[in-house]
């Protein structure tokens, strides 16, 4: 179909349209006007700079005033920025206006040539490459070629080895948290121990393990230790006997670190008993040991077994029995 049309006469190229003169080309008054317009744009730019400097020096940064849509706005920031914007924008507008109105606007045609060199040049070039390859003996001396490859490949190993000290090996670090048998649950923030009766039905509390005297808490500890306490009616649980024994009087504790990608999961919906991760919307059912009911997470949140100590404070019954947080290759399943 298209074949035959290619044989048929196409519409002819009428060539570049005739150049139409601008008003500024023919009318000196228009050109003068354009010149003045460009000058005004440049002057506006200079005024913008003055505004910016004035704002920098004289407008205090605690002055606010109301602008519709924007609300209460900081005058220092606004006028400094606007001044800068004006000073830059109007230089640009002036330059473009100048180019458009006063510089020649006749279109110019430049020739383009195919990039491929003439055949004889190419043949010479190919010949040279062949000669060079032969001179180096790349074709014949394969031992050199292979050992060079080996050496180059090996030399890339040094930089890799040098990066080894970037950090320690993970070891068992990802499996461990600060929770131990008998560690008290304390509020985050506040570090106050909690009694079961402190929590009403439907209450939550963000908790961390109590600090041992003399130690400090780092962010990397919180990244594994953060726990969410939730109190339900004991009858609402649908847990097996073991998991039920990990709760205390309707209080259940989960790792707050998402089993998907490690965000803090703490959106607890009191009515549905669902926990939602705000990062990727994995949804966990608290009554069924944080079973995943929606979203990308593949595992329930690890549950912390809790009980009370002699003083009646909530403590960990045992450490977590699985690693908290996102999965990794050697994570025991």
């Amino acid at each position: 179909m298209s074949d035959e049309f290619n044989q048929i006469a196409k519409f002819e190229d009428p060539g570049l349209p005739e150049h139409v003169h601008r008003k500024t080309d023919t009318d000196p008054k228009a050109a003068d006007l354009a010149e003045r317009q460009v000058a005004i744009l440049f002057i506006l730019s200079a005024l913008g700079t003055v505004l910016a400097i004035y704002a920098y020096i004289f407008i205090k940064d605690d002055v606010f005033f109301f602008i519709p849509i924007m609300g209460d706005t900081n005058a220092h920031q606004l006028f400094l920025g606007l001044g800068m914007a004006i000073s830059l924008l109007f230089i640009g507008l002036g330059l473009v206006h100048w180019a458009k109105m006063l510089m020649p606007d006749t279109e110019v045609i430049a020739k383009r040539h195919e990039f491929r060199s003439p055949d004889e040049d190419r043949a010479d070039f190919h010949q040279t490459i062949k000669e060079q390859a032969a001179a180096a003996g790349l074709g014949r001396r394969s031992l050199i070629k292979r050992t060079l490859g080996l050496a180059l490949g090996f030399s890339a190993l040094t930089p890799l080895v040098l990066l080894r000290d970037l950090g320690p090996l993970p070891g068992k670090d990802l499996e461990k948290t600060s929770w131990k048998r008998g560690t008290r649950l304390v509020t985050d923030p506040g570090d106050r121990p909690i009694r079961p009766e402190d929590l009403e039905i439907g209450a939550v509390a963000q908790v961390l393990p109590e600090l041992e005297p003399g130690s400090t808490r780092h962010l990397s500890d919180i990244a594994k230790d953060a726990v969410l306490l939730i109190r339900l009616r004991p009858s609402e649980f649908q847990l097996d006997a073991e998991r039920l024994s990990w709760t205390y009087d309707g209080i259940i504790a989960f790792s707050k670190i998402c089993s998907h990608m490690g965000c803090a999961v703490a959106l607890y919906e009191q009515q549905t008993k669902h926990l939602l991760c705000p990062c990727h919307q994995s949804t966990f059912d608290v009554t069924r040991a944080a079973k995943v009911i929606f979203g990308p997470s593949a595992r329930p949140l690890p549950q912390l077994s809790i009980t009370v100590d002699a003083d009646g404070y909530l403590v960990a019954q045992n450490p977590f029995n699985e690693p908290v947080g996102p999965s990794y290759w050697e994570r025991p399943s």
Binding site: Q77, L78, L80, G81, L82, M84, A85, I86, S87, L88, L89, F90, I91, G92, L93, G94, L95, V96, W98, A99, K100, M103
Partner: peptide, 19 residues
Amino acid sequence: AKAGGFFFIVFGVTAFLGA
């Protein structure tokens, strides 16, 4: 002139957004 002017325009618009 046009390209140079456009640099200032892009900078100006960015500064305007920043303001």
